[in-house]
Computed example of a mutant assay.
Amino acid sequence: MGLSVQPNTATAAATPLNQAPTNPHQLVIIPNDTDHPPPPVLATAAYLMDMDTGATLYAYNPFMHLPMLSTTKLMTALLAVEHGNLNQQVTITSALDRDIQQHISPDSSLFGLKKGETYTLRDLLYGLLLPSGNDAAVAIADAVGGSYQHFVDMMNQRARELGMYDTHYMNPSGLLATGHYSSAHDLAVLGRYTMSNPILHQIANTRIYHIPKTAQHAEHYLVNGNQFLWWYPGADGGKPGWDGNTDFVQVVSCTRNNRHLIGVTMNTKDWWTDMRDLMNWGFDDFQWTSPYDVDLQHPIPYDYDWGYFVRDKKTNTLPTANHGRYYIYTGYSVSPPILNFFDKNGGLDKFGFPIGMPNYSQGNLVSQRFQKATIQCDLAGKQCKRL
Rank of each mutant, 00 (worst) to 15 (best):
P31T: 10
A218Q: 15
Q227D: 12
L110S: 04
L121N: 01
C377N: 04
N134R: 02
V294T: 15
N258K: 13
S253T: 12
P106I: 12
F283T: 02
K372F: 13
T71H: 05
I30S: 04
P198E: 10
S109V: 09
A80E: 11
G331V: 05
S173Y: 01
L222A: 07
L57Q: 01
P62I: 08
Y304H: 13
M170T: 14
N23C: 03
N258Y: 13
Y47G: 04
Q102A: 15
Q216C: 02
N245Y: 14
G347D: 02
A373E: 10
T273Y: 15
L125S: 04
I355C: 00
T22I: 14
V28R: 10
G179I: 09
I203N: 05
Y209D: 00
K239E: 14
H201N: 10
A141R: 02
T255F: 09
R207G: 06
Y193C: 10
L190I: 03
N224Q: 09
T214Y: 06
R369H: 14
D305R: 12
K73M: 13
L162T: 04
T167M: 04
T206N: 06
R160E: 11
L339T: 06
A45F: 09
A20D: 02
D107V: 08
R98C: 00
Y332C: 03
T53G: 03
L96C: 11
I211R: 04
P337S: 10
F309K: 02
C377Y: 07
N322E: 15
F111W: 11
P354Q: 07
I100Y: 05
D123A: 11
Y304R: 10
Q19P: 00
V294P: 04
A184M: 06
D284T: 14
V251K: 09
S335Q: 14
N156E: 08
D343I: 14
S196N: 15
L187C: 02
T178E: 15
V189S: 01
G346W: 07
K114V: 07
L379K: 08
T44P: 00
T255H: 14
